[in-house]
Amino acid sequence: MLPFDFDYYKPASLKEAIDLYQSKARNREKSMFISGGTELITLGRINLVHTEAVIDLKDIAECKVMQFEGDYLVFGSTLTLTKIEETNLFPLLTKTASEVADHTSRGKITLGGNICAQIFYRETVLPFLLADSQVMIVGPDGVKVAPINDIFKEQLQLKNGEFLVQLATDKRFIEAPYISIKRRQQWDTGYPLITVAALKMGEEVRVALSGLCPFPFRSKKVEDSLNNREWPINDRVDAALAELPRPILNDVEGSSDYRLFVLRNLLHDVLEGLGASF
């Protein structure tokens, strides 16, 4: 039961969506873009989200694409995770997405919604961070395209009135060897204790993490340590652990010390799994 009322709009074009947002802003009304809208409901019902207007992006054509354009695979932000999994164009994304929430919920949760979520795991961003994808954002200043690694700092840096439209990923990354492991507090249900996604480009291993810190990240320093072939594998992992961003989460899913213990083993598994452990 959402304890507030809002106006609901379902614009058919990018421009209409942006104009709506701006006209609401001019009236000092707070509005929110949604696509799956699961956080509007689950956080709204416990008073962690409030809005006076909801702008539903689901009908906008640009947000629904899923296709190759030249060497790039383009995903629209309002695609549901289930749809992405069933189509399976980007196996690493399929694997990482398939561990989010549960299957039925993923029929509602969208790619853009997950990447821009308030709940800080945002696991589906990991493959895009690894693949140096490009993001297309639209806002009052028009469309802009930027490398995700420039614009995703803990979360996608969106200005008021902007939203994510598409992500484009170079084919080379889609075909690269990968690993994605989600470790939970216990068994197969629940938020991540740690989710690790990794790609191997040539001899280089790329690693991105969720659930370790209160934000997902990919760290150049961590990767450099892991890829330092002059060191034995244990030292590489130790060095990587020393380069982690802070804070390390310490919550009901697990203590920070335990998370580091789990991460150490996961990094070994990643290097071994990608044949980079020698």
């Binding site: 249900t189 919550d251 009901v252």
Partner: peptide
Amino acid sequence: FYFDEYGRVLNPQLRTYRPLHYGE
């Protein structure tokens, strides 16, 4: 139940308080 120093239960939802699911 996970409690904090104020005696608050930190996991009062089924996504944080997790019964057995199918396949577990």
